[in-house]
Amino acid sequence: MTAEVGVGVAGWGAAGRLMAAALGRSDRFRLAGIADRDPASRDAARRDAEVPAYQRVEDLVAAPGVDVLYVATPTAHHAEAIVAAAAAGVDVVCEKPAARTVAEAMFAVQTAADAGVQLLVGASHSYDAPVRALREVVECGRLGALTSVESSCHTDWHRRPRTSADLDATMGNGLVLRQGAHQFDVLRLVCGGAARSVSGLTFGGAGGAERGFAAHLRFADGIVASAYYHGGGGFDSRLTTWGVGELGTVELEPAPPLADFFALPGSAAAPPVTPTFGRTTATFDSGGAVVTATGLLVFDERGVDVVDVTDRPSGWDAVLVELADVLDGAAPVHDGAWAVATLEVCIAIHRSAATGAPVELRHQIALSHE
């Protein structure tokens, strides 16, 4: 059966190849071509994916069979790619963050809307099945009202190869914008979307060079949320999730002395798992819940329920599920307005860290834009 929707990928880096892999698993979408400014990347795509490769995004979106553009270019080029796709009448999925600034993102979103094309932003970890299951616990009311959510993550982000642009917030980069976008998307989804204000601190640098950050968000109905991220290496959050990382694979093998203190089954013995991005814990009037490598643990007065969601899509596969639903007429969750709201939170962290004062948020939306 021939897939009916062709997807062009702009940027043949890690995210672009992960989307290509998800397209290969889909019965609705297919990889139709790629665009990349680097000749070696274009050659690799032609060789490995056996699809046409172009230097310019404008040529990709004009190519026959390209119905959707997935934007995985550097952040500084996200908005221009969205505008190019809109001009060609091509729907868009754009990596987070949507742009370098709120104004730039709002222009791109409005351009897409004026052209009548769909715009989703992802993949962020709010697409992951355990996070969506946690939101379902909130909505069903089994534990009463949600009171707080905490997200923390320890990685070696700064120990990986980085360019100067990767550490420049004015280019849409740095830890807050690149990794915080995941955490704030998760917190916004679980808490209902519309944050009221945020207070934040960065440490070990600033302006994109920060090695970590901490933030507190205030939502409606008295819900509070906190985010902590350290990207300088050392302690690793995967030690608390069976060694499972954000791609949904076992990345840490058991070895002393860590295996004496943490449950690390190893890749050969681990059950099916989902992507994990640090730890996310929620408290309710009548219980609590924590995200695990297979789904959720839900705590109530009767004890603990294990919720397994390993059969549900996460990551780029979940993006394609939402895209299919939207193309079939469903209301989106991760649309352009949602992306602007998450970007606003990220930029507000930098502003709050610089001024020492909380920042009131002006571009927030609730889930389903209610």
Rank of each mutant, 00 (worst) to 15 (best):
D236N: 13
G200C: 10
R211C: 03
A227Q: 07
A225T: 04
P257E: 04
A263L: 14
G222L: 11
T202H: 07
A225P: 06
G232R: 00
Y229H: 12
F203G: 13
H230N: 13
G278Q: 12
T241N: 11
A194F: 02
D260P: 05
P265F: 08
R279T: 15
A225F: 09
L252H: 08
P257D: 04
L239W: 13
S199R: 14
S237V: 11
S197E: 05
G248R: 02
Y229K: 05
S267D: 14
D260L: 10
P265T: 09
T281E: 14
P272S: 13
I223M: 07
P275T: 08
G222I: 10
L247S: 11
A225E: 02
G278T: 05
V244W: 01
E246P: 00
T240H: 10
G278W: 13
A259H: 08
S226A: 12
F213S: 01
D236Y: 02
A269D: 15
F261H: 14
Y228K: 08
A194N: 06
V198E: 00
A269M: 13
Y229Q: 09
S267H: 13
D260G: 06
T202D: 01
F219P: 00
P271W: 07
F213G: 02
A255N: 10
A270G: 05
W242M: 12
F203W: 09
G200N: 04
T249C: 08
S226I: 05
P256D: 08
G234I: 00
V250D: 04
L258Q: 10
R218P: 00
A195Y: 02
L247C: 09
A268H: 12
G248D: 06
A195E: 00
A194P: 06
D236M: 04
T280I: 07
F219T: 01
A225K: 01
F219K: 03
L201C: 06
L264Q: 04
F219M: 04
G208A: 03
T281M: 13
A209G: 04
A225C: 11
I223P: 05
V250F: 02
G207A: 09
A259R: 09
S237N: 07
P272H: 15
S267T: 14
R196V: 14
E253M: 09
P272Y: 14
F262Q: 10
S199I: 04
T281A: 15
A214T: 11
L264D: 03
A195G: 12
L264G: 02
P265W: 11
A255W: 09
G204S: 04
E253I: 01
S267R: 15
G232N: 07
